[in-house]
Design a protein around this nucleic acid. Structure first.
Lengths: 225, 225
DNA sequence: CCAAAAGTGTTCTCCATACACCCATGC
DNA sequence: GCATGGGTGTATGGAGAACACTTTTGG
């Protein structure tokens, strides 16, 4: 068994964020060949003492300093020739995180990851574009069927924030009244007494997600993939 | 990059079949430690010249002689220690195949895979039970939302066959009239003029799936996993 | 008073569900 | 003629979609 040729095993992360109006993905601009100058997913090699998920989380933490992040496996990319340097298989992961907590890296360190609007994230290095596609498809499916947004929005948010997120994920067609009816039917969404301030229009109510009531949905999804 | 430790990479297959009343999974009884005597998923090591999917299909073909099979990736199992012999990462796949075309192996070759009823497939070797769980969850989700059954049923089948399959996948609660209404609303299901013969009750009509009309659903699913 | 977004209800259609009886066939 | 499964229709309830106006606030 041990005399089989072995691939290098990478864990890459499609980390998505939301700035209030647009989806972003965390990318690194490559300095060296292959794909020098191209954008690529953050990631690194899996160590024998950890799972691919753990490696993805570790890489993400090293990159952003952020630890309280949900990471889940997306797909394993194993097409021969996907990395010109040799046999490298990559387990792609999806991470959803609150962009506000992880500001765009200070511009001085070129190795730092940057938030790039998903719409502008084209022609990624390797087959990372496929991983991004899958990540978007996954959250689309999730937003269609389940309460969605807890990981991407700040603790408190308005229904308009949530609506903007759904709009960004699903496309432009959403009726406000129907949307509100739908999300308020989720028991997982709890209204707060607090309201927006300093806006020059009526103050929107804040909401938060109830993680307890969200959990059943997280389980329901597992079979969904 | 090449001085990182590398795992052995396996491609394992959860091959599911349906005998008309029950779901089966194709398993191999292990002869050697670890897990000697336990049931395990068929599979083998990925070669540098192929993708994990291709490896899964190759292994399945070697095992069953069958080639016209749909294989898709399920999940990558990478928990450290999952294989006591060393660092082995496995990409688990789902394959759906027509059991009738792949009869239970002749009993004389112990290395041959056997169809085991899913209900009796407990305590699999390694973490193969997890892969089986995921496979079942995936087809459950699919049967709930999309036309399902084309890969598991013979070319021609009766609505009762299809119903039995859905019952096996989803559980026992299915109303026959509602089920028929639902599947007949799929344009993908086409009635034939042919009917059952030799049964001592009214002859059931045969149906087949229209692969052309099925395709849009296959695409719709990609985002679902 | 004006701009900008918050907030709110009703109607309609469609789909899922619940539910019970007659029909064709072989023995 | 009887046992076995094939085959059919209707009524109801809930969810999603379409659709327009009033309210609050800051400038």
């Amino acid at each position: 068994m041990s005399d089989y040729p072995r691939p290098a095993l990478a864990a890459d992360v499609v980390a998505l964020g939301f700035d209030g109006s647009e989806l972003f993905v965390l990318l690194i601009q490559r300095e060296h060949e292959p794909f020098a100058g191209s954008w690529a997913l953050p990631g690194g090699f899996v160590e024998p003492s950890e799972s691919a998920e753990q490696a993805a989380l570790r890489e993400l933490t090293e990159e952003t300093g952020l630890t309280d992040v949900s990471v889940e496996q997306l797909h394993t990319l194993s097409q021969p020739g996907r990395d010109p340097r040799g046999w490298v298989v990559s387990v792609a992961h999806l991470a959803l995180l609150r962009m506000a907590d992880h500001p765009p890296a200070a511009g001085d360190d070129a190795r730092r990851a940057e938030w790039v609007p998903v719409k502008r994230a084209k022609a990624l290095a390797f087959d990372h574009g496929l991983a991004l596609e899958r990540a978007l498809a996954r959250i689309r499916a999730r937003a269609e069927r389940f309460p969605f947004g807890a990981e991407l929005l700040p603790e408190k948010f308005t229904l308009r924030d949530l609506e903007a997120l759904h709009r960004a994920v699903l496309g432009e067609d959403l009726d406000r009244r129907n949307f509100r009816k739908r999300v308020r039917s989720w028991a997982a969404l709890v209204p707060l007494d607090e309201r927006e301030t300093g806006v020059r229009h009526r103050r929107a109510r804040f909401f938060r997600f109830d993680g307890r009531r969200l959990r059943p949905f997280v389980r329901a999804e597992t079979g969904e993939s």
